[in-house]
Amino acid sequence: MSLSESTSRRRKKRANGVEFTAKEFKRQWILIAIAAVYVIYGIIFYYLPLAGWIMAFQNYKYKTGITGSKFVGLAKFQFLFSDAKFLQVIRNTFCMGALNLIFSTVMAIVFAILLNEIKNIWGKKIVQTISYLPHFLSWIVVCGLVHDALSSTGIINELLVKFGIIDSPFQFFASKPWFWPLVVLTNLWKETGWNAIIYLAAITSIDPALYESASIDGAGRFQKMWYVTLPSIRPTIMILLLMNIGNVLNAGFELQYILGNGVIQSVSRTIDIYVLDWAINGRNMDFSLGTAAGIFKTLVALILIVAGNTIAKKTGDERLF
């Protein structure tokens, strides 16, 4: 995988201990110039905006701007953590994010392995293409489809009523216990095919000799999947898990924003929607609170990634840094 390659290359470089001298600079200046573009890009778009974090410690007003707004220390954070609604949205975001991470990873792996077992090349291609197409749909379209399919006159309710499983249409979007599973299922429908591509690629690179020797040892199909395929793609799984764990708090915005409604808002609202409510909506225009919530999300993501990486290090698995 490109990622593990690049990390190993970095390690090698450090081991070689190339001194940064004028001569070395002259030799590599073209490469450095090319890299510089990306470094500058990163500084402008990822690091300069961090200056805006100042707002979290101010009572920022649009009228007075950053220079003229009053500093209030940690008051905005205090407000956040004493707001029952914020604690509620943390719970919602974390739970939906974790469920998404677990189910999307497991399903993508299972799907990739199953797809790999299809021997008919045409069948395999068709299934793969169909399964990753939804990835290219916008969330607005997907939400519209889900909303229609699950409405009282939608196909799901029609089928359930026709087969006598329920006697009157069920209100999926007015039921709190159903919201998180629906978010997970919608995510699975949209992204499983896409996520499986990377695992499929990993599976393709497994040495066929391993399967042959497993066959000679008398392994069946499922044993080969369990003892050859899975351990071989384990480094890929670990790296992707580590990268995605930082995204747990990015449980989504569009999906919850569009499918949520007044009845279920206590389980549907995520941190992003909370930020929107405070920073943009209505008379509050409290960019400070929005920024504070954003900082909180970044810190949690950082902690999760470092913790995940440390665990990976301890267990001797592939890791990010």
Binding site: F45, Y46, P49, L50, A51, G52, M55, Y60, Y62, K63, T64, G65, I66, T67, L249, N250, D272, V275, A279, F287, G290, T291, G294, K297, T298, A301
Partner: peptide, 21 residues
Amino acid sequence: MKKKLFSVVMASLMAVSAFAA
């Protein structure tokens, strides 16, 4: 996260410039 933060920050930068204007 970064995207979100970025947009908030850009928004504020624009706010500042609009104010200046």
